[in-house]
Design a binder for these strands. Structure first.
Length: 275
DNA sequence: ACCTAAACCTGGGCGC
DNA sequence: TGCGCCCAGGTTTAGG
């Protein structure tokens, strides 16, 4: 699924395309079941204007003049498409301009639903600031992340601490920082945590600049692939050699997620480095 | 109150 | 060709 760079890319394009437009019809495909009755779409979406497009962590929000929101989490395989389709469309919105917005998903994990403020606020409470939030200071980051007695990769993927970092960008940010994914976060030290903070911001911003990572399903709002996959530091380089030291890259499952690291450049024990 | 493992799904790619 | 397995940008939940 989209991580923060992909979500922010979609958000920006969505804002540009649909702000101020009125929804005139909604269509749901039979093989998609939102958590609520489709009445909510006809009641709170059809006939209403798009007032804003926003996000909470990786959740996309379309604010409507009815006071309700379309909340869409793309999860692993979801995409939003504007005036272009694919074989996995689940929901379609038609605007007064004739433009179309589609929610597409292969694996059925994501959702595209009508939410009210209450549900939105409950959701918000469960998530930390995104890694790119202007008001997430380096002090706050190091305090939140550096206090956990858990592997740093697990901590980075915990969205209630700091949100937006997913598996791709976590792998790459750790490689850039020379940090072993198994290293306990509370053993990293101030300097390493700060380095990690800067590298997370760098790699997320690079992802945005390259319009996201398309390793499989991800496409932007116009159905186009992102480019960040061409710049991966270590993610996806199973059986390949480290571009820094030439050693064979390790691939292991950690918390069920594919984890790539170079045990030379990202030593678990600092003593290994000194030898 | 922790942690992990499995579950939620579909489809693509690989080896045999 | 086909079957079985492994893999996938995430999150939630059940179970120890």
């Amino acid at each position: 699924m989209p991580e923060l760079p992909e979500v922010l890319t979609i958000k920006k394009d969505l804002k540009k395309e649909i702000l101020g437009k009125k929804v005139v019809s909604v269509k749901k495909e039979k093989n998609y079941k939102p958590a609520h009755s489709t009445d909510l779409f006809s009641k709170y979406v059809v006939g209403h204007l798009v007032e804003d497009v926003d996000n909470i962590a990786k959740l996309l929000l379309i604010k409507l003049s009815s006071g309700k929101y379309i909340a869409s989490h793309l999860n692993m395989s979801g995409i939003l498409l504007y005036n272009t389709t694919d074989p996995y469309i689940k929901m379609s919105l038609e605007f007064d301009t004739g433009d179309m917005l589609y929610y597409s998903s292969v694996r059925m994990f994501g959702y595209f639903e009508v939410w009210d403020n209450i549900k939105l606020n409950e959701y918000k409470k469960r998530y930390g600031k995104t890694a790119l939030d202007q008001d997430l200071s380096i002090e706050e980051f190091t305090k939140i992340i550096g206090s956990k007695n858990k592997p740093i990769k697990t901590v980075l993927l915990d969205q209630k601490l700091v949100s937006g970092i997913g598996n791709i960008y976590a792998n790459d940010a750790l490689f850039m920082s020379g940090i072993n994914p198994y290293k306990k976060a509370n053993l990293l030290g101030k300097e390493k945590l700060e380095e990690l903070f800067y590298n997370i911001r760098e790699i997320l911003n690079e992802g945005i600049k390259n319009r996201g990572s398309s390793i499989d399903r991800y496409r932007d709002l116009y159905g186009k692939m992102g480019n960040q996959q061409n710049f991966f530091r270590i993610y996806g380089k199973r059986e390949k050699n480290c571009n820094s030291c030439g050693n064979k890259i390790k691939f292991e499952k950690m918390q069920g997620r594919g984890t790539f690291y170079c045990d030379q450049c990202q030593p678990l024990d600092d003593r290994i480095r000194l030898l």
